[in-house]
Design a protein around this nucleic acid. Structure first.
Lengths: 225, 225
DNA sequence: TGTTGTGAAGAGGTTCACAGCG
DNA sequence: CGCTGTGAACCTCTTCACAACA
C-alpha cells in the first residue's frame, strides 16, 4: 500500500468537471516538459500550452493545495506527482471490458491505457459466436457470468462497448455485480443508482457538435450548394 | 439543394456547447419515441429521459424558436426535423479519415455514423506499410497527397486517429488543405487557426475523470487496500 | 386545464487585480 | 522583482415562477 491517497483533499466539497478535465490536460503537458528535462514551469506557461489563462491554472491547483513557489513557479516533477495523486493515477485500476468489439480493442491498444495504470482483467460479450474466443489475449466470457467473477477479480471499472440497444441492460448487470465506475461508449444515457459513476465517450455527440458548428459557420458566408 | 439551412437562427449570437450537447441527446430520444409511434412529447417527459429539467428543455429549444403547442407539448416528428436542421444533420458531411487504425475503423463502423449523414470519402495514413492497402473498403492514401485531393473530393471533416506524437503535424496538413472541421481522437490539444473547428473525443480524459471520481469516493468510506 | 415560452433570480465557474512571499 | 494564491467582481448557464395561450 502507498498510504498517501487523499493527501490532497479539496477545500471545497465538489470540484467541477471542467477543473478535473484541465488537471488531466496539465498533467499531460507536465509529462512532456519532464521528458525535455524542464524542471520548472510557471502558471503562465502551462496556460499557454493548455489554451487557458494563468489565473485559471493557479485557481485549479489552489483548490487542492499550494504547490508552487512564489517568484519561481511550479516544480515539474513535484506537480506531476501531485496531479497523479489527485487524479487517482497513483494506483492500478482493474478494468473489465464488456463488448468484445472494435471500440474496446481500440481502447485496450491505446498506449496511455496501460501506461496510466489501467489493466484489463476480463473481457465479456453476450454473442455466443464471440464467447470462448480470444480477444487481445483474453478469453471472452459470457456476460451472464460477470457477477460471479467480480468477487474474485475485483474490477474497479467496466467499459461498455456494446451496441446502443443493449447498453442499459449491460449497465444493469455491471451495477448489480458491484462495480462502481463505468466508461460508456454507447450513444445512450445510462441510468445508474447513486454511488456509481458513469463517464461517457460520445463520438456521436462530438460529431454532432462539429456538424452544428460547421452548419452555423456556413450561414453567414458561403452556404455551400 | 434543400434551401432551408439556417431557418432556425438563434436569437443570441453564441449557443453554449452544453446546450448543443443536450439538443443532440433530445434528438436521440425523439427518434426512439418516433420509432414507438409516439406523436407528442412534453418538455417534462423529454427532461426525464435526458436527466435534466423541463425548464432546461424548454429554454434550450426556445433559443432557436417556438416549436411547441401550449397545453399539449411538442410534435415528435416536427421536433426531429427541427433538431436535425439545427444540428446540420439535414445534409451529407463528407469525411476524410486520417490514420487507418483501429479507432478510425470503430468510428466508421459505428452505425450512427452513416445513418446521420457522415460519409467516408477518403482514408489516409503516413505508414508506407498501410498506404495502398485496403481499409474498410477504401484504398489508403499517403497523407502527403491530401491537399491535392481536397479540391476534387471536398471533404468537410477530417477525423484524426493518428498517435499523439504526430497529431499536430497531421492537423497542420489538414488545415492547410482547407478543411474546416476536425474530429480529434488523439490525446493532445490541437492548435488550429480561427475559422477551423476542432472537437475532441478524449478517451484518456474521460478515463482520468472516472479515476478521479473513484479515488475521491474511496477517501471517505472504504479506501480499498 | 395543461403545457409552453420567458423574464427574473440564483448558482457556479471564470477573470481580475493585488496582497503575500520567496 | 517575479510569480503564486485568493477574495471579489463578473459573467454565463441553470432554475424558478408565472403569464400567455391552445
Amino acid at each position: 500500500m502507498d498510504g498517501h491517497a487523499g493527501i490532497y483533499c479539496p477545500s471545497v466539497r465538489q470540484i467541477a468537471d471542467s477543473t478535473v478535465r484541465r488537471l488531466s490536460l496539465y498533467l499531460r503537458f507536465l509529462e512532456e516538459l519532464d521528458g525535455r528535462r524542464t524542471t520548472t514551469v510557471s502558471s503562465e506557461a502551462l496556460a499557454r500550452l493548455g489554451g487557458t489563462t494563468s489565473a485559471q491554472v493557479r485557481k485549479d491547483l489552489s483548490l487542492f493545495g499550494s504547490f508552487g513557489t512564489r517568484g519561481l513557479g511550479y516544480a515539474v516533477s513535484d506537480l506531476i506527482e501531485v496531479l497523479r495523486d489527485i487524479l487517482g493515477l497513483d494506483r492500478e485500476w482493474r478494468v473489465a471490458i464488456v463488448g468484445a468489439g472494435k471500440i474496446g480493442l481500440a481502447l485496450a491498444n491505446y498506449g496511455g491505457f496501460r501506461q496510466r495504470g489501467f489493466r484489463v482483467v476480463a473481457v465479456y460479450d453476450n454473442d455466443p459466436a464471440k464467447i470462448g474466443g480470444l480477444w487481445d489475449g483474453h478469453h471472452v466470457r459470457d456476460v451472464a457470468t460477470m457477477a460471479g467473477d467480480v468477487a474474485r477479480e475485483r474490477p474497479d471499472i467496466a467499459v461498455v462497448t456494446v451496441p446502443a440497444g443493449s447498453a442499459q441492460a449491460t449497465a444493469d448487470i455491471i451495477v448489480s455485480s458491484g462495480i462502481k465506475g463505468i466508461l460508456n461508449f454507447a450513444p445512450v444515457k445510462l441510468r445508474v443508482p447513486a454511488g456509481v459513476t458513469v463517464r461517457a465517450v460520445s463520438m456521436a455527440t462530438e460529431l454532432e457538435l462539429l456538424s452544428y458548428a460547421l452548419a452555423q459557420r456556413g450561414l453567414g458566408a458561403k452556404g455551400q450548394a
